[in-house]
Design a binder for these strands. Structure first.
Lengths: 138, 138
DNA sequence: TACATATTTGTAATTATTATAAATTTGCAA
DNA sequence: TTGCAAATTTATAATAATTACAAATATGTA
C-alpha cells in the first residue's frame, strides 16, 4: 500500500475534507506514527516541517478529522486527548507504569438483551489499564 | 440492604479509608445518586449540607476513593471527569443529544489470543456513544 | 490537657481547550 | 492576469478543569 502524498490527498478528499498542506501533513503524521499522539506531540513534530504551524490549527484539524470519521479520539488519559488513525473497532491498553498506549485485539463485545434496544450506537470504545510485560519483568 | 451512615462508615473502613464527615457524605451521595456525577456537581449539592466544604476536598476525596477501589473514574466526557460508585465491570452509553450517561449491561469482552499474554490488566472500561431512544423519538 | 498527625480549606498556579478576530491563502469569475 | 469572496490558518486572549501549596482546623492518643 502506497503512502505517498497523493494517497493522503485522496483519503482526505474521499472523506470530504479539503486537502490543505497542514491537513495533509497532519494526516501523514498520524498514518505513519501510530502511537496515539496528543495534540501537543503532533504540533511539536510538525512545527519543524511547517514553521508557521499553529497549535490552533492542529486542534481545528483534529476536530474536522473527527467529524469526517478520519480519526478517533481516545480518552484514556484524563489530562490530554489522544488520537487514533485506525477507526475500526479495537481496544486500547494503557500501562500505568511506563504510560505507553497500545492497541489490543478484542472480539466485538456483546450487549446484553435490553441494551441493544435502548439506543442507536455510533461509536464503541474499549480500554484496559494495568502493567505491560516489559514493566513487569524489570 | 441498609444505606444508613453506619453502613457507609463500614464500607469506607473496609476499604482502608478513614471515615471523616466529608468522606461519608460524599460516599453517601455517590451511593444514592448513580448519575455518574462530576466533581462540580458533587460539590454543588454537598456544599449545602457542609457549608465549609471545599472543592479541593472533593478532588482529594475522589482521588483517595479511586486509590482504594471505592469508585471508578469515567472519562467519556472529554472536558470533565465523572465518577461511578459501581466498580464491577459494566458499560456506559452517552447520548450525544441530551448528554445523559447511562449504564449498559454487557458481556465481559474477550481479548484475542496474544493480548491476554501481553499485560496484567487491573481495570477494563467499555463505552458507547450514540442517540438514546427518547431523543430518537422526539 | 498537650501535642503530633491527618484532614480540610482557600488561594494561586498550571494546563488543555475554546473563542475570536486578524492575516493569509485559495479558487474562481471577469 | 487581476480582483474578490470564501476558506483556512494564525496569534492572542479567555475559559475551565485540575493540581500545588501552605495555613487552618480537626482528630486521636499519651
Amino acid at each position: 500500500m502506497g503512502s505517498s502524498t497523493e494517497n493522503f490527498i485522496q483519503i482526505l478528499k474521499n472523506a470530504g475534507v479539503k486537502p490543505s498542506i497542514q491537513r495533509i501533513k497532519i494526516y501523514d503524521f498520524l498514518w505513519n506514527n501510530r502511537t496515539h499522539p496528543t495534540i501537543d506531540s503532533i504540533f511539536q513534530v510538525l512545527v519543524n516541517e511547517i514553521p508557521t504551524l499553529s497549535k490552533t490549527t492542529v486542534y481545528n484539524t483534529m476536530k474536522l478529522f473527527m467529524e469526517h470519521q478520519l480519526v478517533r479520539m481516545v480518552t484514556i488519559d484524563e489530562s490530554e486527548a489522544r488520537f487514533d488513525v485506525v477507526t475500526q473497532f479495537h481496544g486500547h491498553f494503557k500501562c500505568e507504569v511506563c504510560g505507553k498506549l497500545m492497541d489490543v485485539e478484542i472480539e466485538n463485545p456483546v450487549l446484553v438483551n435490553q441494551a441493544k434496544l435502548d439506543f442507536e450506537v455510533s461509536e464503541a470504545h474499549y480500554y484496559l489499564k494495568g502493567i505491560c510485560n516489559e514493566c513487569n519483568n524489570n
